[in-house]
Nucleic acid binder design. Structure first.
Lengths: 334, 334
DNA sequence: TTAAACCGTGCAAACGTTTGCCTATCCAAA
DNA sequence: TTTGGATAGGCAAACGTTTGCACGGTTTAA
């Protein structure tokens, strides 16, 4: 491993100055054709590659964006990161990765690393139990543009990309109504989550539009564990008005709920129809998938977040990006 | 965004030299306690953060490892990258990501970017249709240690981590034999793949151990598309000896095969038992998952690859790492 | 009392690249 | 012959940090 060739080296060999070499390599107009050729040829011969670390340092810019996600191995996030990487790559940006494992401490630490690496900007989906936002504020102070994505903190002036669950939920409930269901249950998530509130809002909205009265006992909440879902299900199925269809908070919940219902001898999607929110790529394959899923387009969200960030980077005075994608019901045709 | 504080700035304010500040910040023994304190206090006040880009440049080391994978959104790879990130993070390394989308061109381009970024080392799972390895050779020339992982190129002197499918296949076939199956089919992948050869080898080995003769007509191959799998299945099910159990190349193939079999009114895991190789995290949830899966531990593979790379980085003279993990049969208890 | 040892600090170079400004040469127009 | 403008290229500083070496001062041992 001989030291890689540098501009200086080329300059020395050609008996010209480093600045000339640099300009020649960049096709600067004030360099004569002769020298330009000589430089470029020698550079090719030596397989010269610019030392980006030097350039990053000198330009105070790294052409790198940091991405902090809760869990890289979750289908939703890995789709998102795929979108991020594609869009970033298309614009010659690199992607630095970190996963918080939904822990606030780790998240703060990664933010620190990213800051030290002098990433040009960040895309973050915050950890579940992050309560303190000081590390995000410090990013603002440091002048590192940040686009939040999917899980966004409750702060005033931020850029974000998120997916509105209201519209998707309205579609989901309407779909069930159109299939003749009149008693529709919902297994929602923890009440403090924005995602939960949006789902409930959509549920109510759809019912009202159809001039049906909203029965709160049909909306139960699960802590998203299997036990929580089992509890929610047994509550739902033991009430006076037993639903003929259920909207589940997400695919994991739906699958738990399906298993519960199967144990109770319900015929899935006959006695009891399920609709869910997609995070698993499996509907194709499961024997009793939900009949329809509200799709959140993680890949596209990732792309849009990256796009937004790149725009901010090229125009730092650009206004707050508040991008909301519409979720959309996808009906599974078996 | 005022310019972030630098060592120079601290030095100026304290009327001492930059070198003293640098040393004080690093707890260098030759700096007096008084100055050390003063420096560290001011640094804290100013929220000084070392400019890593300067350090990277100066140290010719970036504490960054590059990862190039075919597809970030595939469950197998996203699990792997999770392992990589965890292990890297534990050692204060960052991870730079790239996905090749299984295209040779893109792969080469990413290798170039990684080189320019001066990553300390690389972990690569090569693209399906990469035929030309020159970009990998150039990495060697540039002195960038590279650990290949799962999909490894056919080159002599390389580091790699892979998972041996032979042992897992032997276990899988044994498992089926122990369940009383005597006619066991296999849907294998394209014959040129190492992965396919290993599966067949395992199949034969297991049969021989049980003094059963190897019937080649029971091993058919699919191009891994649904159509290919359907074709393979219909071949398998229309022969004289119809298998009562099938070993499928992977989960995707297995699920396609299951659907095919269901259409033909087979009762899954009763008339026809399936065993597969895991790449989906869904066995828990599917109604008719394979009865068992050969697990390849992508997360662990990722970790081990990273471990290996870190060792190489700390001891560049270390010998070629050729790490083979044993695959292992996991029996799904419903 | 002198020399040696030690302590705390500063100097300056180096890492590779870019860029504002200056200079030298040449040619043409006045 | 002077002026003036291209044209082609060099100088040097700057980015922030680290580190080998030297320096002046104080203490310690002989």
């Amino acid at each position: 491993m001989p030291a890689p060739p540098t501009i200086k080296e080329i300059a020395r060999r050609l008996n010209i100055s480093a600045s000339t070499v640099s300009r020649a390599l960049h096709d600067h107009p004030s360099i004569g054709l002769r020298t330009k050729m000589r430089v470029q040829q020698l550079a090719a011969e030596l397989k010269y590659e610019p030392n980006q670390t030097a350039i990053f340092f000198q330009q105070r810019k790294t052409f790198t964006i940091g991405v902090i996600l809760p869990e890289l191995s979750e289908a939703f996030f890995s789709a998102a990161i795929s979108g991020i990487e594609d869009m970033a790559g298309r614009h010659q940006y690199s992607v630095l990765m970190g996963q918080s494992h939904d822990e606030e401490e780790r998240e703060k630490q990664i933010v620190g690393t990213m800051k030290k690496h002098r990433v040009d900007g960040l895309i973050i989906s915050i950890a579940k139990n992050t309560k303190d936002y000081s590390h995000f504020v410090s990013l603002q102070q440091a002048g590192i543009p940040t686009v939040f994505f999917d899980r966004i903190p409750n702060l005033a002036d931020i850029h974000y990309v998120a997916c509105d669950m209201v519209s998707g939920t309205v579609q989901a409930v309407k779909f069930l109504l159109s299939k003749g269901h009149r008693v529709i249950g919902m297994i929602n998530g923890p009440e403090k989550l924005l995602a939960s509130r949006q789902r409930e809002e959509g549920y109510i909205k759809a019912m009202q539009k159809h001039r049906l009265k909203y029965d709160p006992t049909l909306v139960v909440s699960s802590d998203l564990t299997r036990e929580g879902t089992d509890k929610a299900m047994s509550k739902l199925l033991s009430q006076k008005r037993v639903p003929s269809a259920i909207v589940a908070f997400n695919d994991y919940v739906a699958l738990d709920a399906v298993q519960f219902a199967m144990k109770k001898k319900y015929k899935i999607n006959e006695d009891l129809t399920f609709v869910s929110y997609a995070n698993l790529p499996i509907n194709h394959y499961t024997a009793f998938p939900p009949m329809a899923s509200v799709e959140q387009f993680p890949y596209i969200q990732g792309q849009r977040a990256t796009e937004a960030l790149l725009e901010i980077l090229s125009d730092p005075s650009s206004p707050w990006k508040k991008i909301t994608l519409e979720s959309q019901l996808v009906i599974h045709t078996p």
